[in-house]
């Protein structure tokens, strides 16, 4: 007798549990307001990107075309992937002193893993991460960037 009871109990349990699951999917079918997905390229303007999002390394310049990088190459040493190459040059200051200065801040976006260790290590806080995330290009060469703008200078220490 018990086995017959178990037999019908199994049938009942099967139906009721399956019906419960169907109620859940049915619930979401008739509640389209709970839809989570976003239509990406259309909502580009309203997209929420957190401030700290690590998109790519940038070297901010102010309105006088001046940046903070002294060319100390600490970021280059801290980069685990070799995606940073700092090229410096020797310049003679008007006072006649010889000084090392940044020539090219080369950034290989294709090698970068966005770990943020260069930003963490920079003693001058010269570089930071921007929120740009649409990096796809058709030519790999475009991914090698020179971050300092042409003719830019080191910001003089204190004004």
């Amino acid at each position: 007798m018990n086995s017959i009871y178990q037999y019908f109990r199994a049938i009942w349990y099967g139906f009721s549990s399956l019906w419960k699951g169907m109620m859940l999917t049915g619930h979401y079918l008739v509640h389209p307001k709970k839809i989570l997905t976003e239509q990406y390229p259309e909502n580009r303007d309203t997209l929420y990107i957190p401030d700290r999002f690590q998109g790519e390394v940038v070297l901010p310049h102010d309105e006088n075309n001046e940046h903070l990088c002294t060319g100390c190459t600490i970021c280059e040493m801290n980069c685990p992937n070799g995606s940073i190459k700092i090229i410096t040059q020797q310049v003679v200051t008007p006072e006649g002193k010889k000084k090392k200065e940044l020539d090219k801040w080369v950034y290989h976006l294709g090698l970068c893993t966005f770990c943020g260790q260069c930003i963490d290590a920079c003693p001058q806080d010269a570089i930071k991460m921007s929120n740009a995330f649409e990096h796809s290009v058709y030519d790999r060469k475009v991914l090698t960037k020179v971050l300092n703008q042409p003719g830019s200078k080191l910001k003089s220490a204190k004004k």
Binding site: T25, G26, Y28, L29, P32, K34, I35, L36, T37, Q39
Partner: peptide, 13 residues
């Protein structure tokens, strides 16, 4: 479309 709505998606758009 039905599958999309059941899974909180929009389906093909």
């Amino acid at each position: 479309k039905l599958a999309g709505f059941m899974q909180m998606r929009l389906g093909p758009m």
